[in-house]
Design a protein around this nucleic acid. Sequence first.
DNA 1: CGCAGATATTGAAATGTTTCAACTAGCTTG
DNA 2: CAAGCTAGTTGAAACATTTCAATATCTGCG
Lengths: 344, 344
Amino acid sequence: MTDIHRPAERRRLSMVDVAAHAGVSVGTVSNVLNRPELVAEPTLRRVRASIKALGFVPSAPARQLRGGSGRSVGVMVRDIGNPFFSEVLPGIETRLSQEQLLLVLCSSGDSIEKEAHYLQILEQHRVPGILITPAGQDISHLVELRRRGIGMVLLDRPGADSQLCAVAVDNVRGGELAGAHLLSLGHRRIAFLNGPPIVRQCADRREGLVKAVRAAGLDPDEVITEITLPALTPREGEAALERLPARGGPTALFCVNDTVALGALRGLERRGVSVPHDMAVMGYDDVEFAALLSPALTSVRQPKHQLGQAAAELLLTDARGDSGHWHQEIVFQPELMVRASTSG
Amino acid sequence: MTDIHRPAERRRLSMVDVAAHAGVSVGTVSNVLNRPELVAEPTLRRVRASIKALGFVPSAPARQLRGGSGRSVGVMVRDIGNPFFSEVLPGIETRLSQEQLLLVLCSSGDSIEKEAHYLQILEQHRVPGILITPAGQDISHLVELRRRGIGMVLLDRPGADSQLCAVAVDNVRGGELAGAHLLSLGHRRIAFLNGPPIVRQCADRREGLVKAVRAAGLDPDEVITEITLPALTPREGEAALERLPARGGPTALFCVNDTVALGALRGLERRGVSVPHDMAVMGYDDVEFAALLSPALTSVRQPKHQLGQAAAELLLTDARGDSGHWHQEIVFQPELMVRASTSG
DNA sequence: CGCAGATATTGAAATGTTTCAACTAGCTTG
DNA sequence: CAAGCTAGTTGAAACATTTCAATATCTGCG
């Protein structure tokens, strides 16, 4: 067993070394790397051989210093653990890797401070663009960043009067679909397991739910019992069951996303409450596993892969900073997926 | 409606501008940023005021150029869409963000070329370290990268004779647990829905399964029907059912991960095959939703959050390049979670 | 008053690229 | 054969920082 030490800290190779080795100037090495068509065939071969022989790897930071903006874009989500984002990410990654852009993943955990901190670091890195699901309501700091030349696209969030590009799914409509569905099944006392109202998606889904209740000629305050969860995890979804009114309690549970619904289902099963007989349950997002839960979960589907791709696409045009680029907002429509957890 | 144009491409601010504005030298501005304790109180205030007034943001690339290695580490997974990785990532992110490190997410999609390409870009960016689940068997290129000074930790993969640090779960043991469980239930014809054998995890789980069969005094070739899937997705899991031998077919299905099992369950349900009565099904990973599938999925649990944290931790020490650092391998033990899909 | 020792600030070199004006050779052309 | 091209190559400036030896200013002391 030999102790594998890191070799003596030899200075990293630079183009100067390559130039010396190949007997040309640094300018020529640079040309070989960036505009090979300008370099004569024999020189090209010689320089490339030297690069290989020495194991030279150009320095991205140095390139960027001279060149301008970098080759990595920021993607800020509220919670990487959330399967919704895991299903959106592939759409983003595919598009970015086509453009040779690195994906810097940031998770704000719904903390405005953590978000601000990440944004600061991203700006220092001179990223050409950022894809973000903001933690808070106020997005003026994002508008400001864009003014300073960083491409900015809101992900899963409407664009606030077209100040920024945005890709979103109509959450009000989704909440409305959910509400109308539960009401049509005869439910008149609905518990809404929601996230903090500062989160736009939560507020919007709530608005849709209220709208549906009103449209049915009922009083939202009587029909809806809203329970605010500190975090959108299965654990909190299960814990929230404790806070349901004991008597005259709800007959249906609308969970603001499938992850919460997962916890709620688990909790109900443990308590021996039959779904949907004693309690109807529905989620939101229609993540991959929703259809296969026990019982199969009714949910509101969002086109997640498309959302990611569209967002990346929009970011690319925004980051390019084409003059005359108008702020664009792409809104996808949600779709109700009725399954056993509400209509068994 | 006003056309919001990007403002005239004014040159980005540098420390020179700040220095001029505050009436000090650039050296002093640098000190304010990096060693404020060396700067006199009034100067400190003045420079900070100038930074704020001008909206100066230091350039990370320039810092890195002089300073050495960068502040972002690479995390290469085989497939971001896989919920296993979504559950490992939070553990990594938490630890990295504590150290003010950015997480560059790369998804190789099991392609050696895509992996190599990403690695090349990461090296150009002078990342201090990389956390990787390699796409292929051969990891000599990773050892080489480490020799060149990039911290390297294998994620979810043993460390090949301690050439590299590694964090893994014992996959052979996991496969063995699964096999022993199915055999103990009396199953004698087991279909193994596996991934490509180049993927180490797949090969190891297979080895464990074979070991369990041998331990029971049976012939692996008779008991196990292996079906190789081109990708580990629900879609492929479902498609694989078509390839099961029609007569004398298996009575149990061991899926190499829960995502595949998800697809298999969906397919069996569509075909009206009762689980576990007509066919026992088990998965691997025990992802968040496994316990709530219909029927609840028997699976082999891996401590995912811990895995991520331990990996990040190890990478930090490896990237620091403490002299005398020995290659370390952390192996977690898997745990069998028996549920309705095998023992209803 | 002169000097030692702190304390605070400066100016310039160094980092690894890109870019571009200037230069060289080798041809063609009138 | 001089003049004008063209293709290929060069050398140095520029980019935004950090670092560090050198300098300037102050404080107290003999």
